[in-house]
Simulated assay, not measured.
Amino acid sequence: MNDFIYKKYGGITALSASITDFSYKKHSHSEYAIGVTRRGIQHYHLDGHLQLSYQNGVMLFNPEQTHDGMAHDDSGLEYVMLYIEPHLLLEAVERREIFRFSNPIIYNKNIQYHIINLAKAVFKQENEHICDDLFIKLADSLIGYDTCDKLHGQDSLIFIIKDKIRSFSKANLRIDMIAEEFSMSKFQFIRFFKSQTGMTPYQFYLNCKIEGAKEIIEKERDVYSAISEYQFVDLTHLNRQFKKIYGLTATDYSRYMN
């Protein structure tokens, strides 16, 4: 049995998930993702390294950090996640530059408590003031624990390349043309991109299309606008790709946004 529940408040999306035989495909998110393993063991690869989050583990994902995910064994897995838009977290912690969490998994009861409280408030659709106060408490607990480093680790060229690929998210991707623009052969380009991100350019391109479709669904509550704008073949195509990243179809996700 696999169950996914999403709710959104401002720039924060909360997810409550219970999975047994579901596996996330390799993907990344534009947001910071912060969560707690409630039951079982969260098994995932982050930047090519295996991570295991046991019960009460606090999981910290940086924007666009490549990962997959599944339950470690047949006993299944339950967890909550908060997806926080970068500008919102930067404002809350009073920083101007993007930072990265230095450790992917920590065990800290204070941070765990604030994640769960904010997630509950988002699911209950508490008023704005309550959610804002809980978010500030979470942000303070993260900075107080010194979990963060300045952005590092990726070649600066990769950020330019990512922006270029994003510009094709509503059109057909021509990897050979982009590679030529950066003075690489097609296969040199693919190898460089994967070495920096853990994904191929095409995987990143699909990821951008799905994230774009998700934003349209959240704003317009219309899956067919998402299909049209991001040039998915049909609803089945969008649903299939969407589920690989978010655990449920775009159609089901739109129901949670209503």
Rank of each mutant, 00 (worst) to 15 (best):
D132F: 04
V233G: 07
L235K: 15
G40H: 06
Q241D: 07
H114A: 03
L157N: 02
E181H: 03
H29T: 05
L235C: 08
S225C: 07
F232S: 14
K194M: 10
Y9G: 05
Q42M: 01
Q196A: 04
H27G: 01
D47I: 07
V93C: 08
N103R: 14
A33H: 08
Y32W: 03
S18G: 05
A171M: 14
L60V: 13
G35Y: 02
L46P: 13
R174Q: 08
D21T: 05
R174Y: 09
K164P: 03
D155K: 10
T251P: 08
G153N: 07
D176T: 09
Y79K: 08
I210K: 01
K137R: 14
T200Y: 05
S225G: 04
Y9C: 09
Y205G: 00
L89S: 00
K137M: 11
Y205R: 01
I217R: 02
N108S: 13
E128C: 04
N2Y: 05
R240K: 12
E218F: 08
H114V: 04
V93W: 05
L138I: 12
Y32D: 11
L46D: 07
N2Q: 07
A139S: 15
E180I: 01
I227A: 03
L88T: 04
I158N: 08
H152E: 10
Y83H: 00
Y113V: 07
D140A: 03
L238R: 02
Q42S: 06
I210M: 00
R38L: 15
I136A: 06
A213G: 11
S185V: 08
K170S: 09
Q154P: 00
V223P: 11
N108R: 05
V36E: 04
S254W: 11
G198N: 11
S141W: 12
S23P: 00
F192G: 09
I143R: 12
S156V: 10
K244N: 13
L46S: 11
G40F: 09
T13Y: 02
R174C: 01
N207V: 03
L60H: 11
L238A: 09
L118H: 02
S53P: 00
F232I: 13
F192T: 08
Q51A: 07
L89Y: 02
G212N: 09
Q112A: 13
Y256F: 14
D68P: 02
I41S: 05
R100H: 14
S30G: 13
Q65A: 06
D132S: 13
A14V: 03
C208E: 11
D74P: 03
Y107N: 11
F242S: 03
G198P: 10
Q188G: 15
V233D: 10
I111W: 05
F192R: 02
K124F: 11
S228C: 06
Y145I: 08
R39H: 04
E218A: 09
S183Q: 12
Q112K: 13
E126M: 00
M81T: 13
Y44A: 04
N127M: 00
Q196I: 08
E218N: 11
K8W: 00
N110Q: 15
D68Q: 07
S18A: 06
M81L: 15
I12H: 07
